[in-house]
Amino acid sequence: MSPRKITKALCKATKWILLLLVVTFLCFRFREKEQQTKGAYKLLQEYINKGLLQAPPARPVVCQPRNVFLLIMVPSAVSNFEQRRVIRKTWGNITTEPSVLLRFVLGKSTMHELQSLAETENSVYNDILFTNILETYENLLHKSIALLRWASFYCQGVQYLLKIDDDMFLNLPRLLNDLRRNPKLNTISGCRVSGASPFRTLFSKWRISRKQYQKDVYPDYIAGTAYLISGDIISKLYNATRRVPYFVFEDVYITGMCRKHIGAVASEHREFSCGFRDKGPCGKNFRYHITGHHYRPTEIQRMWSELQDRWSNCRLADAYLIHQLIYVSQQLMFL
């Protein structure tokens, strides 16, 4: 091999090594931050157990309907402490928005320590709704039904309910401005999916048999990562879940089947993300969009800061192809 080719190969190898080092650094930083958050709750728990601190009195997770314009409910795994911490610091920081209420919806973990830490977390923030639903993928539907039930019984009169996952980025000021300019009734809004068909392939993980769903096409539904329900149909939608037979996919069931059952509209909102990380993790990308799907807590925190700065620009690493490459590399590191 000629010296020129050797030099070229070495340069190429060096670039990949540098990329691997950067990705490894980012992965360990995320894990370190996650452990710090859990450690803070563990320390608080120890102080309470030793009598050095008095546990805050248990407070009911309440809702004041007359004052609530938008109720945000975030299904979250018990173990996702860092995701909840970052949401509270960024788009979920509603201290300047008294008409907005934020609630996390948690199931039941099989790990007692995590469940206990989550209860300690709630003693500090009082923004968690605990359900007696085991934390599994199959139970996501029941968690969403539980949040509909809570909103229906304890938040009657709220004008809008936003169900949004804890890995989503949300431009809350833009959403509020949109709702005040364009009021909605009898509607579920978000990324509308039309003409989708069940997977019938025999060995597919997502296979749906004819017994589970007879028709060839699902009703129009709103992607489950984030959808907005107008307040006038929250109770109707919850009551529909007691009549319409359960279906495994939460978004198809609630925003498709149950919505159709009550005669509500599935409305397309172009500023709700339809894709998986379809925009680079940069706040500038969301100045004219409301939601983005699947971002890490560290990314959400930085994106929120960038969104507040009208002069901020995206980094080279946030270019679509580059950030996708970095993301895939990070996922491989976690395997």
Score class of each variant (00 low, 15 high):
residue 74 V to P: 00
residue 76 S to K: 05
residue 76 S to R: 04
residue 76 S to C: 11
residue 78 V to N: 00
residue 78 V to R: 00
residue 78 V to Q: 02
residue 79 S to T: 13
residue 82 E to M: 14
residue 82 E to G: 00
residue 84 R to E: 08
residue 85 R to S: 10
residue 86 V to I: 09
residue 86 V to R: 13
residue 88 R to V: 06
residue 89 K to N: 10
residue 89 K to M: 13
residue 90 T to W: 09
residue 91 W to A: 14
residue 91 W to E: 15
residue 91 W to S: 13
residue 91 W to F: 08
residue 92 G to V: 08
residue 92 G to P: 05
residue 93 N to I: 04
residue 94 I to H: 03
residue 94 I to P: 00
residue 95 T to M: 08
residue 95 T to Y: 01
residue 98 P to I: 15
residue 98 P to A: 15
residue 99 S to I: 12
residue 102 L to R: 07
residue 103 R to K: 14
residue 103 R to P: 04
residue 106 L to A: 11
residue 107 G to C: 03
residue 107 G to N: 03
residue 107 G to W: 01
residue 108 K to S: 07
residue 109 S to K: 10
residue 109 S to E: 11
residue 109 S to T: 12
residue 112 H to L: 15
residue 112 H to T: 13
residue 112 H to Y: 05
residue 112 H to E: 15
residue 113 E to F: 05
residue 113 E to C: 10
residue 113 E to N: 10
residue 114 L to D: 13
residue 115 Q to Y: 02
residue 115 Q to F: 06
residue 115 Q to V: 01
residue 116 S to C: 09
residue 117 L to N: 04
residue 117 L to Y: 05
residue 118 A to Y: 14
residue 120 T to W: 00
residue 120 T to I: 09
residue 121 E to Y: 01
residue 121 E to N: 03
residue 121 E to G: 02
residue 124 V to I: 15
residue 125 Y to I: 11
residue 125 Y to L: 06
residue 126 N to K: 09
residue 127 D to H: 04
residue 129 L to H: 09
residue 130 F to P: 08
residue 130 F to M: 13
residue 132 N to G: 06
residue 132 N to K: 08
